[in-house]
Each structure stands twice: as structure tokens, then as C-alpha cells.
Design a protein around this nucleic acid. Structure first.
Lengths: 341, 341
DNA sequence: ATTCTAATCCAAAACGTTTTGGTTTTCAAT
DNA sequence: ATTGAAAACCAAAACGTTTTGGATTAGAAT
């Protein structure tokens, strides 16, 4: 069926060794032979058998990405953009990308283990770090290469890229207090997500710095979906003394909150200010456009992938740990009346 | 390093052959030996070397999915949901999923070729079929297994799942004409996408059936993003005699159109009706909620994946070609005034 | 003529598995 | 005692590549 080194060797009248070395441009093969081998390889349409190569060479030139998915109806713009970043960078550097989808938990960890031991991939990209992150613990302990998007509190001797969520949420808080908001609600994500931890911290610190009290009744938690944002915001806005601003810890929940406010007849930006975090593409073209904090998700995907591949190739990384300063994007969801066109 | 069959064989005092056959439950190994081999394999933490297996067995137990991405800032809820469907089903059936990201074009086709010839995967899932689809032509010609989400016009002797876009768009058109709309605009996707073809056809036929003229000025084309929907709808709604309804061929453009209408001070559902197609999760929780056509994207991902794996395993498919009837989801973007709470 | 060096080349081993084509052993039937 | 069949086992080949550790040849230097 497929063309092998042997076929080429037969045609050229040289050994398999020589053919292999010719194709790899070793210098103990004469220029003439190299040329001939290459032309015949081309002619026969030779493509190396990747499993033979991998069996021999002990590495897979593949990186693994296990997407933590929740429920079947899983849809998060974050992931398609991040995946595109990883995928393009991997291709650029000659690596394959093996993707699995697993809800966080035991099965997820087993998948890591199987892929490490097989060995199916050379390294992993980990996303949305968690408190007491089993994935990171496992891979660290196995000394298996990985790069994470996200820090951890206790255990930080690994390569990562992260955004400074504390700082970003500080920008949001200052922006809102500058506008005079006193009652600010917060749509939190489940506590075990590190990103939620930092963002929440930034919010709380921001309030304190601006001399405001923290009102526990206005701190609520959802599962990061638009649906959750809608639900939580509805509850908040229908209580007797509703907040004048709602800070969501991600854009999706913020979009849900916008719908909820509008459903209640409120004008977002005037009657209530709403902010997000991430700056997903949807944030710009919703109505009103969403004030949020920009995270370069695609670039982070590229960076993380590049760092991982360099680590696999045992090249030194200039920077093992990168924290990006996000920037505030002010749009109409926190400005004056918008129906003035 | 890693535990091999040889290690187990040494421990058990049997040959590598016997160990291999014991682990595969062949019946020419005694029950006692099987038990012993298994317990020692367990004890040593044996995991087969996947490359040796694949080199030997000639199949990869991996399916390929090459995501057609546009630009870096690529974000489409369709893909995260579809990918989750494929990923979960593949895992359930013991297959790996190799994902690449490529903008449609030459590089994309080369990626297919390389993966076929390496051979890196056992089959492909193809998504968003196109007129004169090079991917399908190539794989058909190579007799390489694949299943597509989408039909083609000319060449239809392959396995696919598709939604009946014509029918779905017919539902939309009837719904709008029932509501009395006379000037209906259409936000089309680029003509080479088959799904765009069927949906457009459904729209045009629907108009005709309801005795309406087709106004070419109201047919405009965008790149399926929210941004495009926003732009196109703004243009449409600011012309001297604007449409009373805008039909978008996908939800993302519809969401953009909603923003555009609202930016212009219009109340969507009252001043202008807007519809989408896909029923992405965002459609339910935007404001106003979007009238659209439901496509079970996650399930289609699962189905397509299962069909592909069955095809690879040379099991017979009950149905090689499946066309799903979508259903209309009427929400407030095509109803009366909504700010009435 | 001999030795040395550099330029080419290659047989065989190795990677870890599965499969092929057996062999050996045991025991019942003749 | 001999035959046959069934049960249990295994050496070697095969998959296609890379690497190891040389071998061969030609030409230059002695």
C-alpha cells in the first residue's frame, strides 16, 4: 500500500539506512544520492509512517488539551477562541493537537493519566486552574510537561500565563465608583476557580479602597452561563433596594444580566450599569455594548502553546511565568442613556 | 522506564506472546495464566505503548476534525458545542480526537492529505460543506472514511447528517408572513456554503408560496459574525423604506441585527421583527429572546461521530444519510411590544 | 607500496506490539 | 502401545522507522 523507505531503497539501489539519512540531510550521504533519494521519494509520494517514527523516537509531537466541559449544551466563546490560538500555533511549530472533552472530575484525571502513560502526547495545556488543582498536581508529580492558563495559590513552580484578574477587576470597580455607584452587586463564579478568586478579590479590594462597605446580600454566584446571569440579575433587580450596578465576573453572565434588566424594563447604562470581564467578540456587538476588561484570549492560546513546545524541546523559556495586565474597555453599558440616537 | 509486555513476561515466566494473548483474552491461554498475567500487569501499572500497537495494527483509533476557522478572533458557539458532541461520543467509543484549525484553502487541503497519508487518523468529520467541496472530493477519491455535517448538490454518495434548512427557513418565512410582514430582508451567508444555499432557497420559496415578490435590495450577504449582522442591519434599517422584518441565516448575525436595531432606537419585536437560525444558547437569553430555528448541534456532533466510527469499523449503518427536520422556536423578537412589564 | 583520512555507505539492532505457524504436553479413545 | 484431539504455550516475523557501530573505497601523504 503505502510507500516505505524500503520501496525507495529498492528503487535507488541503496540501503534503507542511507535513504533515511538522506531524507534527514545527514552529512554522511553524498549530494548526488541525496538528490536522487529526494526526487524518488517525491515521485513515489513518500510520507513517513508516523507510528514507526514515534515508536522509535519516543516522542509524539502532539500536545494534549482536555477541555473542561459542563453539561452537553456546552458553549463558551472563550474555548473556540482559545482553541484556535493553540491550534494555529501548534501547526506553525509542527505539532498535532489532541483534544478531549471531559467534565471536571475523576474521568478527567484518568484521561490525563492514560494520555501520559500511553504515551500519547508530549505535554498538556491546562486551562482555568482550580484551587487544589488535581491536574496540576498530577502532572507536576509525574514531571510531565505542561503549561497552564492560570496560577494557583499554594503551588506555583510551573510555567503559566495568567491575566491579572485582581487588577482588571480593580479597574472595573474604580470605574463604577467614579460614576457614583454605591450599591454594586457582584456575579461570582464558583469559588474553586482561580480566576474567580482573583477577580472577586479585586472587586472586594477595590470597594475597600474606595471606602465602601461590602454587602454580602449583593454577592451571588452562578455557573458562568448567560442563563445564570439572567437568573441572578433578575433576583437582584427585583429585591426591595436593588443595586445600581452589577459587576459580572465574566461576559457571558453579564450578557444574561443585560437581558434580565431589559426584560424588567430598565435601560442598561442609565437605570443600571452592568460590566463583564473577558471582552468576548459578543461583548462589542450586543446592545448596549458591554463595558468589560479585555483579555487577549487568542494570543494567550498562542503563547501557552509556544511555551509548552519550547519546554518539550527543552529549550529555555525567557519567562516561565507571565502575568498580563488587562485593560478596561468602557462601552455604553456603564454610560448615560443610550436611546438618544 | 515504561512497563512493557517483556517485563510482564519475565515476571510471569511466560513468553511475550502469551502475555499479549492473555491480556487480549484469547482462548489459547489457560485461565490461571490469564489471571496471573492480569494481576501482574495491574501491579506493574502496564499501559500498552500505543505507537507499537498502531504500527502493528494499521489503525489509529483516532478521528480527525479540521476546524475551518476565519481570522484569529474566531469565536463561534456552534463549534464549541459541536466539538463537545464529537469529543464525548469519541471518548465513549474509545477513539481519540485530533483537532486542527485551518482557514479554508490550500493549507487546509494539505492538512487533510498529510493526515490521510501518514496515516494519523482513521477518518474525518467534515463540517459546513461547501459548493464544490475539495475536502469531500479528496476524501471520496482516496476512499478514506468520513462523515459530513451537510449535503452537497451534485455529489451525494457519502454519509452525512444534515438539517433541512429549506424547511426550517420555510417555517420562518410563514411565521413572518402570517404576522403580516411585507418587506422582509435577508441576511445571507457567503454563497459557497451549502447550508446558506438551502436556507436561502427556503426563504425564497417561502416568499413565493406566500405570494410575495423578491426584492433583491433586501438580500444582503455577511460573514456570519455578529459584527456583520450589525453592519448589514444598520444599512438596511437606515434606508428610505426599511424592512419590517429581518431574517438572518444564522443566530450570530441575528444578534448583531438586534443590536443594530436597538442602537437605532427601534424596539425589536414591535418596530422590526428579527429572526435567526441555529438556536445557540445565546439566543434564549438575549433581549429580546430570539425567534429562531432549533438545530440539535450537540446531538448532530454525537451522531456524526458515531456514524464515522461505525464506518471505520466496517459496521453497517442503518442510515447513511440523515436529514433532520428542525423546529421553529418563537420568541419575543417577532412578537408584540416587549417593554410592557 | 604502505598508511592515513575523508567520504560514502550499510547490516543489524532497537522501539513494543500483534500475528503466524507452529511445538509440546496431556489425556482419552482405540 | 498407538492415535487423535484438545489445551497451553512460544519463537520468530512483521509493522516502518532511526540509530549504532562499523565496513568499504578512493585518494593523498608518506
Amino acid at each position: 500500500m503505502a510507500v516505505t523507505l524500503k520501496d525507495i531503497a529498492l528503487r535507488v539501489g541503496k540501503s534503507v539506512t542511507t535513504v533515511s539519512r538522506a531524507l534527514h540531510d545527514f552529512d554522511d550521504v553524498s549530494p548526488d544520492t541525496k538528490a536522487e533519494v529526494r526526487s524518488i521519494a517525491e515521485e513515489l509520494g513518500y510520507i513517513p509512517n508516523i507510528h514507526a517514527q514515534r515508536l522509535q523516537s519516543k516522542h509524539t509531537d502532539t500536545i494534549g488539551f482536555i477541555m473542561p466541559t459542563f453539561g452537553p449544551r456546552f458553549s463558551d466563546p472563550f474555548f473556540s477562541e482559545f482553541l484556535t490560538g493553540i491550534g494555529n500555533q501548534a501547526a506553525k511549530m509542527g505539532f498535532d493537537l489532541l483534544v478531549s472533552t471531559r467534565p471536571p472530575g475523576t474521568m478527567e484525571l484518568q484521561t490525563y493519566e492514560k494520555n501520559v502513560r500511553s504515551p500519547r502526547v508530549d505535554g498538556f495545556i491546562i486551562v482555568r486552574t482550580r484551587q487544589d488543582d488535581q491536574r496540576i498536581k498530577f502532572l507536576s508529580q509525574m514531571k510531565f510537561p505542561f503549561v497552564a492558563f492560570g496560577r494557583m495559590l499554594d503551588h506555583n513552580d510551573y510555567a503559566y500565563v495568567d491575566e491579572d484578574g485582581e487588577y482588571g477587576m480593580g479597574l472595573i470597580t474604580s470605574h463604577l465608583t467614579d460614576l457614583g455607584h454605591k450599591r454594586i452587586a457582584y456575579l461570582d463564579a464558583p469559588g474553586h476557580f482561580m480566576f474567580a478568586h482573583y477577580r472577586r478579590q479585586g472587586f472586594l479590594d477595590g470597594l475597600k479602597e474606595n471606602g465602601m462597605e461590602i454587602n454580602q446580600d449583593l454577592m451571588v454566584t452562578g455557573d458562568m452561563t448567560q442563563r445564570a446571569g439572567y437568573q441572578l440579575a433578575t433576583d437582584l433587580l427585583t429585591q426591595e433596594s436593588p443595586p445600581t450596578a452589577i459587576v459580572a465576573c465574566n461576559d457571558l453572565m453579564a450578557l444574561g444580566a443585560i437581558s434580565a434588566a431589559q426584560q424588567l424594563g430598565l435601560t442598561v447604562g442609565k437605570d443600571v450599569a452592568i460590566t463583564g470581564f473577558d471582552n468576548i467578540p459578543l461583548a462589542e456587538h450586543c446592545h448596549p455594548p458591554l463595558t468589560t476588561v479585555h483579555q487577549p484570549i487568542y494570543q494567550i492560546g498562542e503563547m501557552v502553546c509556544e511555551m509548552l513546545i519550547k519546554q518539550i524541546r527543552a529549550e529555555s523559556l525567557e519567562q516561565e511565568q507571565i502575568i498580563l495586565q488587562p485593560s478596561l474597555v468602557v462601552r455604553q453599558s456603564t454610560l448615560g442613556p443610550i436611546n438618544t440616537l
